[in-house]
Design a protein around this nucleic acid. Structure first.
Length: 602
RNA sequence: CGGGGUGUGGCUCAGUUGGAUUAGAGCGCAUGGUUCGGGACCAUGAAGUCGUGGGUUCAAGUCCCACCACCCCGACCA
């Protein structure tokens, strides 16, 4: 591709609203532009990378028997009502109406659609297993789009759905998909972790996320201050001893009986704690460690029919721990809970925030409360002679003991795991945190969708069975950004060869010079004939401009043609390692091919 | 949705105690010239509803009100 025939609007400065390295570089390199918050235009250079990634995914999906289809993006309401997701998906679903008033949504995912297709088409166990996949735009009305294309309202995704005759077959296939996904991300040059994850609104039995993580492990060294954290939004917890890894939302906390010596349970004692509200303040004031505190939080779930009436969940957790709202929602079986604000808390209990506690906590305003539950994290079970609010302004109570002084309706694992927790798998104290970008997610769905949509086939015995399903997503556009997050330097992007927009940046120092022009044209010709993708900078620009753009765009190899090395040689420069090497025209194809192979190994 | 912030040529920003006249600069863009191995220089030029709407005033980019958009900090997902 000749640069004068291409469209490559590079920028010296990134727009000020770019919030991550990848977004800045994608803008600067002329890959994307922003139309609106979370909505991006892909320019020719960016699209080339996107298509490379797409093709790698396609090949690996085909290898495990995937069949590519193309499903609509504009979806009718009815299948979504069948599964109930029309109601539970919430505000993230873009909804719209046609001129007749019929309701539609823009596809955020396609379980319903594919299931409705399959239930009409596949009737026999002989046709199973089968996996359909597609590439397409997905729409999600994200609360807060961020990080460039990493979290967008409209994004490019590969989604796949498999159908099986039984659980065993589905699980076998699941591992095949996980394997294929690993190959895909490796082929894209990504360093990633496979972590246990929660299933969210997709649902199902279990799921794994593929997380792109920061490559350098210098997090704790003093020099690392300059290296920004990878722009991931997910916190991953992993064990440096065994191979355990999970999204923090998912990681289960273990509970061990701490000491053999159980202290004597003392009688309750009310203490005056004027204006001391937070665990920290009271802890300091009473000179008691946060571990002895029972933190009392009020979560509410507004009723859909009347938002002023709530189901109220008072949630208890040890003072030094944090509630994990994903776990809370899951364990309570609710979708929509929020931490109540101070006014609401006072309205319900007539106790100011900061002085709530589990003992004799009572709803005083029945009109705003539908149901009321006292919920406790497991950590609370192990607190002896604990401290909590007295349900009275400026007072706390000491020596609180569970079961003697109060009894929760529900006790579950509801908190975030911490670094001082033992590993959920091997129990060693070797946990670490990392940030990650979720680029893929696999779900073992089971029969959730087939049952709710009555999608069945006939088995060997002529008996009607529900399909056992799996679904598998990859954020294609997100991979592009993640790849940059993992591979760049102060001059620009450094592409891994398999997804680079072009393998070679061909740079004549002065294209108007006859000898240089002649040689460069010849090289361009040879490379093109040998199917090496080359971006030929035939602009009449000063060398510095060309070098800067070449570095910014980050093709793995740059070939520089100049008087300095002619007539025999040209210069081959490796973007990643910054090595240069003289090569002859005859050897150029061989050298480039070898270098690319080498770069794939690094 | 809550809290904080910003809206001025394509990009980065200045100007904002109400006024000077014709709203500026750098980059980018166009034309011509000198340059040519790491974002050159000179000259000329095009390009702006000062986010939108209302208000105060002799006078508003500047003050007031409303709205909109965008960004940052908290709850979702590939």
């Amino acid at each position: 591709m000749r640069l004068t025939k291409f469209y490559l609007p590079t920028l010296r400065q990134a727009p000020s609203d770019c919030d991550t390295v990848s977004a800045k570089l994608m803008f600067r390199a002329g890959m994307i532009r922003k139309l609106s918050s979370g909505i991006y235009e892909w320019l020719p250079l960016g699209l080339r990378v996107l298509k490379k990634v797409e093709q790698i995914i396609r090949e690996e999906m085909d290898k495990i028997g995937g069949l590519e289809v193309w499903l609509p993006h504009l979806l009718p309401k009815e299948p979504w009502v069948e599964t109930g997701r029309w109601y539970v998906y919430g505000d993230e679903l873009f909804r719209l109406k046609d001129r007749k008033g019929a309701e539609f949504c823009l596809s955020p995912t396609a379980e319903e659609i594919i299931t409705s297709l399959v239930r009409n088409e596949l009737r026999s166990y002989r046709q199973l297993p089968v996996m359909f996949y597609q590439f397409g735009t997905k729409f999600r009305d994200e609360i807060r789009p961020r990080f460039g294309v990493i979290r967008a309202k409209e994004f490019y995704m590969k989604d796949a759905y498999s159908f099986h005759k039984d659980e065993t077959d589905a699980e076998e296939y699941y591992t095949k998909v996980v394997d294929a996904y690993s190959k895909i991300f490796k082929r894209c040059g990504l360093k990633f972790l496979i972590v246990e994850a929660t299933t969210g609104p997709i649902g199902g039995k279990f799921s794994h996320e593929f997380m792109v993580v920061r490559t350098n492990n210098t997090a704790n060294s003093s020099q690392s201050k300059n290296i920004p954290e990878i722009a991931g939004e997910e916190t991953i917890v992993y064990c440096s001893y065994c191979n355990y890894a999970a999204n923090i939302e998912k990681a289960e906390c273990s509970y061990e009986i701490s000491q053999n010596i159980q202290p004597e349970k003392l009688p309750l004692e009310e203490v005056y704690t004027p204006n001391k509200k937070t665990v920290e303040e009271v802890s300091l004031f009473l000179n008691e460690p946060p571990e002895k505190f029972i933190k009392t939080l009020v979560y509410v779930e507004p009723l859909p029919e009347n938002k002023n009436v709530h189901n109220v969940y008072v949630v208890l957790v040890r003072g030094d721990y944090e509630i994990n709202e994903t776990k809370l929602k899951e364990k309570l079986g609710v979708h929509n809970i929020i931490l109540a604000d101070n006014n609401l808390v006072e309205q319900i209990f007539n106790v100011p925030v900061g002085f709530l506690g589990p003992i004799n906590l009572a709803v005083v305003n029945i009109s705003v409360v539908n149901k009321y539950f006292l919920v406790a994290d497991r950590s609370v079970e192990y607190i002896v002679n604990g401290i909590s609010g007295a349900n009275k302004k400026d007072f706390h109570i000491k020596n609180i003991n569970i079961y003697r002084d109060f009894s929760p309706d529900i006790i579950e694992d509801l908190r975030n795991i911490t670094l001082s927790d033992p590993c959920p798998k091997c129990k060693s104290k070797s946990l670490k945190f990392s940030k990650g970008i979720e680029v893929g997610h696999t779900f073992k769905l089971g029969t959730k969708y087939s049952k709710s949509m009555n999608a069945t086939f006939l088995d060997e015995n002529g008996k009607e069975q529900f399909y056992v399903m799996g679904c598998y997503g990859i954020g294609v556009s997100r991979i592009v950004a993640a790849a940059i997050e993992q591979s760049y330097d102060e001059d620009g992007i450094i592409w891994y060869p398999t997804i680079a927009p072009f393998s070679v940046y061909l740079l004549p120092i002065d294209y108007k010079d006859k000898e240089i022009k002649h040689t460069t044209d010849k090289i361009y010709d040879i490379l093109t004939k040998n199917n090496i993708e080359v971006l030929f900078d035939d602009r009449d620009e000063r060398p510095g401009v060309k070098f800067k753009d070449a570095d910014l765009i980050g093709c793995p190899i740059r070939i520089t043609v100049s008087k300095k090395t002619l007539p025999d040689n040209v210069e081959l420069y490796i973007r990643k390692t910054k090595q240069t090497k003289m090569v002859t025209h005859q050897d150029i194809v061989k050298e480039i091919t070898a270098t690319i192979e080498l770069l794939k190994q690094i």
